[in-house]
Computed example of a mutant assay.
Amino acid sequence: MNAPGNTHTLAIRILSFWLKDRSVCAPTVINHIDLQKLAEHILEAAPKLLLLSMALPQQLDSVVSISALVGELPADAHPKVFVGGYAVKSGLVTFVPGAELVADINLLGTSD
């Protein structure tokens, strides 16, 4: 999904195709949903990973809120959170509590 405020959808669409090409089911969230709805969606869908695309460092607070929300879910229900996008790739954001930063899409295949 895009970080709230990130209106660029090309990257998450490419990532979705990249994952599907590797036989990974990857629903794409284009429109931003509030945190309560996101929590409900995560509990219902039970994904193993939540991938966030952050274009700008100004989106950091929203990404931190999403990561914190995931961390508050029951341990057996919360996915690992990965954050990528221009803000990460360019080094403008170097830390998100509770999340792993991924500057290179190919590194996704190396995580547990």
Rank of each mutant, 00 (worst) to 15 (best):
A55L: 08
L52K: 05
L52W: 04
Q59V: 04
L51Y: 11
L43V: 11
M54S: 09
S65K: 14
I66P: 05
L49Q: 07
P57G: 07
E40T: 15
D61Y: 03
A46E: 09
H32Y: 12
V64R: 08
L56H: 08
L43H: 07
I33V: 06
D61P: 07
I30N: 00
S65P: 03
D34V: 08
D34I: 04
S62A: 13
I66D: 03
L49M: 04
V64I: 11
L51Q: 02
A39M: 14
L35Y: 15
N31W: 10
L43G: 08
V64H: 00
A45I: 10
L60Y: 07
V29D: 01
E44H: 11
K48H: 10
A46G: 08
L51P: 07
A45T: 14
S53H: 12
L49W: 02
I42C: 04
D34A: 07
E44V: 05
K48S: 07
L52S: 09
V64W: 00
I66Q: 05
L60C: 07
Q58F: 07
M54R: 01
S65D: 09
L56G: 02
E40P: 09
V29T: 00
E40V: 15
S65Q: 14
I66W: 01
S53I: 03
D61H: 06
I42W: 05
P47S: 10
L56E: 05
L56P: 00
D34P: 06
A55V: 07
L50H: 10
L51C: 15
N31D: 07
L50E: 08
Q58G: 13
L52T: 11
Q58C: 11
N31V: 10
K48I: 06
I33P: 05
S65Y: 02
L49F: 01
I30C: 03
L60G: 04
S53V: 01
L38I: 09
S65I: 00
I33Q: 04
E40L: 13
S62C: 07
H41T: 15
A46Q: 14
P57S: 10
I42K: 06
A46M: 05
K37F: 10
L60I: 13
D61F: 00
K48V: 05
I42T: 03
L43M: 14
L43I: 14
I42Y: 10
Q58R: 13
L38Q: 11
K48R: 03
I30A: 02
L50D: 04
P47A: 11
I30E: 12
L38S: 12
L51H: 07
H32I: 12
H41C: 15
V64Y: 01
P57Q: 06
L49V: 09
Q36D: 11
L52M: 13
V29C: 02
K37C: 12
L56W: 03
P47F: 06
H41L: 15
K48A: 10
S62D: 13
M54T: 04
I33M: 15
S62T: 00
L56D: 08
L35Q: 14
E44M: 10
Q59A: 02
